[in-house]
Design a protein around this nucleic acid. Structure first.
Length: 242
DNA sequence: GATTGATCATAC
DNA sequence: GTATGATCAATC
């Protein structure tokens, strides 16, 4: 099957990219391709809905681009230190969802430096892959947009760091159960679990071990929409295919 | 309509 | 159970 000048075989695994340029070329060849066609490239069937397949689009792109990390806490493209994030967009380019960044180790998050944090390490280099994903569009017909590489600007990093330090501080003081999704301008803390009965080790205000709902860091749409807008204003990124 | 809290599939 | 990949859906 030929897509954007690239020949992709359905019978073999895609090899891991060795350079950012190679990754971006490979990803760019998929711009404008429907999810149904993208799935067929690797012999997959598109689900009728995402309710029971919430991570399907992300996993599909990992397969198509040769991501290697699996379920390990490492970059998706280990050799080049790049993380892959698919992001669902409306026709006007606004994100439809928040973006999950990482789960939170409630016992240690307050004791690490920002630059050593899981949030920064995940976001220091990201391949964003937009997907036109309005709910009324059948999954197989939804189209991939134009992918681009991104690192946080000094302003963006400062904004993330500000929120992270506040939230990590609250968790470290034992106030995790006082945190709601309302906290944070760019980054927020929300549940990240199979269901609301799941518990994990946390700390109370006295530093004693307690059981709490697992949490994760998420990027707000207000933050990711600026990333999208900046990317498509830049001269070296083509008009988004949406 | 936007947002927060809840939830789903899968691999190990 | 822990990690990955996220979207769903009740509520504001």
């Amino acid at each position: 099957m030929r897509v954007g000048g690239f020949l992709l075989r359905t019978t073999s695994l895609v090899d891991a990219p060795v350079t950012e340029t190679q990754l971006l070329e490979r990803a760019s060849a998929l711009a404008g391709v429907s999810l149904g066609d993208a799935a067929r490239l690797v012999g997959q069937t598109t689900p009728g809905h995402l309710r029971g397949h919430k991570g399907w689009v992300g996993c599909l792109l990992e397969t198509l681009l040769g991501a290697t990390a699996g379920s390990a806490d490492r970059p998706d493209f280990e050799a080049i230190g790049v993380e892959l994030k698919t992001i669902p967009l409306r026709s006007d380019g606004q994100p439809l969802e928040t973006t999950f960044v990482c789960s939170i180790d409630l016992l240690s998050v307050a004791h690490v430096e920002w630059r050593d944090s899981r949030v920064f390490r995940k976001l220091r280099r990201v391949l964003w892959f937009p997907v036109h994903a309005e709910r009324h569009i059948p999954i197989a017909v939804r189209r991939l947009g134009t992918p681009f590489l991104w690192s946080p600007s000094p302003d963006q990093e400062a904004a993330l760091r500000w929120d992270w330090e506040e939230l990590a501080g609250l968790i470290g003081r034992g106030d995790v159960d006082d945190i709601t999704g309302h906290f944070g301008r760019s980054l927020q803390v929300r549940p990240k679990a199979a269901n609301s009965r799941v518990r994990r080790r946390g700390l109370d205000a006295d530093g004693c071990a307690i059981s709490v709902l697992p949490r994760g860091f998420y990027l707000r749409p207000a933050f990711t929409s600026r990333i999208i807008r900046d990317a498509f204003r830049s001269p070296d990124v083509e008009t988004p295919t949406l």
